[in-house]
């Protein structure tokens, strides 16, 4: 179970970053960290002891393969992560050109 707990620690590190960091790039980085931890968690869930990578050799039978479904899910999630990072970067560079800083304390027109 240690490996799952370490995975959750990585998730918490990302969460900590999202909450405490005050830099647009650092916030994007924290989101990536959270994504990484979830990818790893999903792949760990699908791992089977002594299982083979899910590529079948057509001649053989009776092999144990690891679960392909979490891998397909993670593949989808990686691409989603790329999409969100790209959007965040687009906004970050635009805000930088307007304010000359990545610091969100100086970018404050709005108050929630």
């Amino acid at each position: 179970m240690t490996v799952y707990i370490l995975c959750f620690v990585l998730f918490l590190v990302g969460l900590y970053g999202v909450i405490t960091r005050r830099n647009l790039i650092k916030i994007a980085i924290s989101m990536s960290i959270m994504e990484f931890s979830i990818f790893l968690l999903l792949v760990l869930i699908g791992y089977i002891d002594n299982g083979l990578a899910p590529i079948v050799d057509p001649g053989t039978t009776g092999q144990v393969y690891v679960d392909p479904l979490p891998q397909a899910m993670v593949l989808t999630a990686i691409v989603i992560g790329l999409a969100t990072t790209a959007m965040l970067m687009a906004i970050a560079i635009r805000l930088y050109r307007k304010y000359k800083t990545f610091d969100i304390r100086e970018i404050k027109n709005l108050r929630g």
Binding site: V79, L82, A86, M89, A90, I93, R97
Partner: peptide, 20 residues
Amino acid sequence: EVAGAILTIFLALVIFKEES
């Protein structure tokens, strides 16, 4: 599609940096 999409994102960033 993936190649086009990633290239579009990258080029949009580069063009924006140039123009701004």
